[in-house]
């Protein structure tokens, strides 16, 4: 793994945020839930993530350089491969959901599989540019997304119906637990953080908790808008951010669909590039490795898309949660304990 300190805390925070928001962009709402239950679910899952992040954040703040090397020594290649395999599957799932989104919303434009292959090719190229290039691009893409999101919220034509925000009742507990689990299983920023923070100049706390705050505020705002403006129509359209754009227009922008599509495609390329960078970064020849993982992730994604497999199916939820727990919590906890013991022995 290349361990040169190249990126700032803000850049890492934005890379983690874009990966999370990509998942929200292509997440298709499959069931109705009251806004309060979902908002509470997000609050609780964010609180749990904040606690789960403590070992990794402490490890880097205390001067640790690489938790994988710390814990596995000469077997670090094998452990790094676990990260590579995990993020190859996550990249495949992202491509599959993006293809599904294209098929459902832009069926007349480009065949989804062709688009998925092109995206993966572009992402492999991005991964080859290295962490600095990805981090700089993340800042640009973040501002593109922020302006789009702010504009769609500001010019939304819907009226606010605060009665939609009904209080949490025992009947909502099922929706609460569903959303809580889904939100927690989308916490693969923890393993991402463990790999990418190796390149961090300083500010592990700022990167991790800044990300959590940014994610929390953005997603709660989205859930609030969905609840009090769009209500059940989100179930019809399926994609919450897309639905927000579907009910917004200005004098000079009649439809937000095309702008949404452009920014989502750019973000998808960047986020896949980050995943492929994580997959290939530990290899001696990262460029061919990035292409190899891109091919593997594309193949997995296309099979997943063609067979209708979904990110929110129980086996996938389990896989994602297991990865978060093992690679994002257990491994950095062990590294933190080892670092602590090493320091105590040195004293």
């Amino acid at each position: 793994m290349r361990s040169d300190k190249k990126i700032s805390a803000g850049q890492l925070m934005l890379m983690l945020f874009l990966a999370r928001i990509m998942h929200t962009m292509i997440f298709k709402a499959s069931h109705s839930a009251s806004g309060a239950a979902m908002m509470l679910g997000l609050l609780c899952s964010t609180a749990v993530e904040a606690v789960l992040a403590i070992p990794a954040v402490w490890y880097f703040s205390a001067g640790g350089s690489d938790p994988v090397k710390e814990i596995s020594g000469k077997y670090s290649s094998a452990v790094r491969f676990l990260y590579s395999a995990y993020f190859a599957v996550i990249a495949g799932g992202t491509v599959a959901l993006f293809a599904e989104f294209l098929a459902s919303e832009f069926s007349k434009v480009t065949p989804p599989i062709v688009a998925a292959l092109l995206l993966m090719l572009a992402a492999a190229y991005c991964a080859c540019l290295g962490i600095e290039g990805l981090a700089r691009a993340a800042t640009v893409v973040f501002w593109m997304f922020a302006v789009l999101f702010g504009l769609m919220a500001a010019v939304n034509e819907g009226g606010f119906d605060l009665l939609n925000l009904r209080p949490f009742s025992p009947e909502d507990s099922g929706s609460f637990w569903d959303y809580f689990t889904e939100s927690l299983s989308s916490g693969w920023w923890l393993p991402m953080f463990c790999v990418l923070a190796v390149h961090l100049r300083k500010g592990a706390v700022k990167a991790a908790y800044g990300y959590l705050a940014l994610k929390f505020v953005t997603l709660e705002t989205l859930l609030l808008l969905v609840t009090i403006v769009l209500w059940r129509y989100v179930d019809v359209i399926g994609y919450p951010i897309f639905a927000l754009g579907a009910y917004a227009k200005t004098d000079f922008i009649e439809r937000f669909d095309a702008i949404n599509m452009l920014i989502w495609a750019i973000n998808c390329t960047l986020v896949l590039g980050i995943y492929l960078y994580i997959c290939s970064g530990s290899f001696k020849r990262p460029k061919p490795a990035a292409l190899l993982f891109a091919a593997a992730a594309a193949a997995f994604g296309i099979v997943e898309y063609k067979n209708g497999l979904r990110f929110d199916q129980p086996w996938f939820l389990g896989f994602k949660l297991a990865g978060v727990a093992l690679l994002g919590v257990v491994l950095p906890s062990a590294a933190a304990v080892k670092l602590l013991i090493k320091r105590s022995a040195a004293k």
Binding site: D161, L163, N164, R166, P167, S169, E171
Partner: peptide
């Protein structure tokens, strides 16, 4: 007139 939503907000037991 959104009576159901009003009841859910102010008189949840009755609404249920």
């Amino acid at each position: 007139i959104g009576l159901g939503k009003l009841l859910e907000k102010y008189e949840q037991g009755y609404a249920l």
